[in-house]
Amino acid sequence: MKRAFAATLVATTVLVSPVLAQDAKYEAASEINVMQGFKAGGGSDALAQLVQPYLARELGVNFVNQYIPGATGAIAWTRLAKQAPADGSTISITNTPMLQTNYIMNPSITYTIDEITPIANVVTDPGIAVVAADSPFQSFEDFVNAAKEKPSTVTVGNSGVGGDDYFTSLQFERQAGVQLQKVPFQGDGPSWTAAMGGKIDASFTNVGVTYPQIKEGNLRALAVFAEERLPELPDVPTAKELGYDLVAGSSRGYSGPGGLPDEARQQLIEGFQRVMENPDFQAAAKAQALNLDFVFGEDYRAMLKEQEGEFKELWSELQSEGQAQAQ
């Protein structure tokens, strides 16, 4: 009997330990709602499941995930910007570039990043150009030359209009002075699968989702769109080395509503900083091949603003080109 009681006690303690084990360090709320603009089980959810247990322990709060899929995240982010209580009880996972391209491309989406409070970016999956193992393109130069020789015939997949790969394609076209035949797919998976099956000539996609295929030799990586070569792909040149100023990828982090109290924001940032230094967390992220890329507070805001500027410019250029062609 006594033993059973003790066991129950242990069980209870384990269950509530996220709240009791540490001094409560987050004062704004005991429970934080995390709005996700995508379905449960997607990339945003993977981030939430990875980060939030560690963050819960650091801050002494519980996290409650709210899945609000629709309009590539715009429903959740509109709610974050316009309706969510700015008291620290509600935050959202913010994914770039959709966070900005949503309203740049669609006038009926009305929130902007000025109406939210960026807290921290957590991961960035760098962009990469891949081709099938038996593709004639041995190098990025082969690919560029083919695109120059025959404009609008080299087919390049991307993860969808408004996604990072789509805008990378636009940026590349502008810098290399070429015209690609851009083929949007419903996400990264179908895009790189089509490249692997030789259905399209190449795919602009992300490292995290294709790395196992590259390692196994099913896909050949031509270039990565990162600042420096990646440690896991040391032989793949960066687009920068090859003379194209292309640094792109999809990032996921956390933001609060506009007017999130400074103390709450600061406490969250400190929580993220402690999570970042936790070796257990680092190991868990590595096991899932997530490329950690912590950017905090105002730096995160600056990162979002800079991207917004780039996307706006590219999009308006594309629009005016379209009009010029129509005339």
Binding site: P69, G70, A71, T72, A74, I75, T78, M105, N106, S108, I109, G160, V161, G162, P184, Q186
Partner: peptide
Amino acid sequence: GMDPTTGTPRFAFDNLELFG
């Protein structure tokens, strides 16, 4: 919903809920 290749909303009447 949004056209899969151009991203243009079709028959959505500016309603975000219909974009998808």
